[in-house]
Nucleic acid binder design. Structure first.
Lengths: 161, 161
DNA sequence: CGCCGCGACGCAATAATCTTGCATGCCCGA
DNA sequence: TCGGGCATGCAAGATTATTGCGTCGCGGCG
């Protein structure tokens, strides 16, 4: 797997990427105004970011509370056995389920941290049953119901140039 | 606070919103092709989503691995005292720090689940010190270093229409 | 010291996309 | 059956994105 080196980023690149992490809906004209470049110069930089894979994708973030009740939960999971194949199967199931927002394999006694989105407490409970209780390779899981989301996002802190 | 009722969504709305959650960079023409509408009809629906606040924002998601080493951590936090004011102060600090990706207040023995993004293990350690050790209202915190991100995103499962 | 060659830029022309006015068709209630 | 409200498609117009071209600044090298 050819791991290309991190491309050089000047200060303008960092500012542009930060702006795009906050709001990717701006026009090239706006972005240019913020960083002091012409729209076409901005456009060429953006094309480079996409070509180099710096920008993985561009998504719309929905407001959970506008879709009726929504409950989130953070689930800590420990598998019963550690085989490579069982990990793969678990990961595949997490990836496949649209109610799984995030899934990270972590160090320590817990193997995975999973973030779930459900329509109701009952839905959440059934989801947990389906994802974790039905899997006989799961030793234990603990569900931390989310009362309140203080902050959410996927923004990365960028290295200073 | 006027909590407006969830707007009616037909099947086309759900399909559009799902498409936008996956990739908000498509043209109205493309989206229309996927759902069988003209670009202008799609545009009017999108305008409605934005007006109703269904779409909170539109962001670029960067690929962490293209920016040199990046380490993520999930931190479980319990405050020492429960005063409303102390919770507010903690939440404000989480919101203000760009290295805090997500912060949820949860039920159970832990008060918060926090997701951190850092440039190195050392950076992560210092970040933890700064955010949690320096705060004398934090009783205890536990850091779960992320080995591998199986899935990430903020997509909501939409209710069937 | 001077001469390229590369890369990034701004400007302007072109292409693509978004936005909006308007007329039509559908559904529902009177 | 007759409107009224609403969503649609189409097409014109406005905005935005893309690209060709000439210029500039910065090394590397003769």
């Amino acid at each position: 797997m050819p791991e290309s080196p991190p491309p050089r980023l000047d200060e303008i690149d960092v500012r542009l990427l930060d702006l795009l992490q906050q709001d990717a809906g701006r026009t090239l004209h706006d972005l240019g105004g913020q960083v002091g470049l012409s729209p076409s110069a901005v456009q060429r930089r953006l094309a480079r970011y996409r070509r180099d894979g710096l920008i993985a994708r561009q998504v719309a973030v929905l407001d959970p509370h506008r879709f009726g009740p929504t409950v989130l939960a953070v689930v800590l999971v420990t598998l019963a056995r550690e085989s490579f194949e069982l990990h793969r199967a678990f990961a595949a199931r997490m990836r496949a389920d649209p109610q799984v927002q995030q899934c990270h394999r972590v160090a320590g006694p817990w193997d995975y941290v999973v973030v779930l989105a459900a329509r109701s407490m009952r839905d959440c409970s059934r989801l947990g049953d389906r994802l974790f209780k039905a899997d006989d390779n799961i030793r234990r899981y603990e569900t931390l119901m989310v009362f309140d989301t203080v902050k959410t996002g996927l923004a990365l802190p960028l290295p200073a140039p």
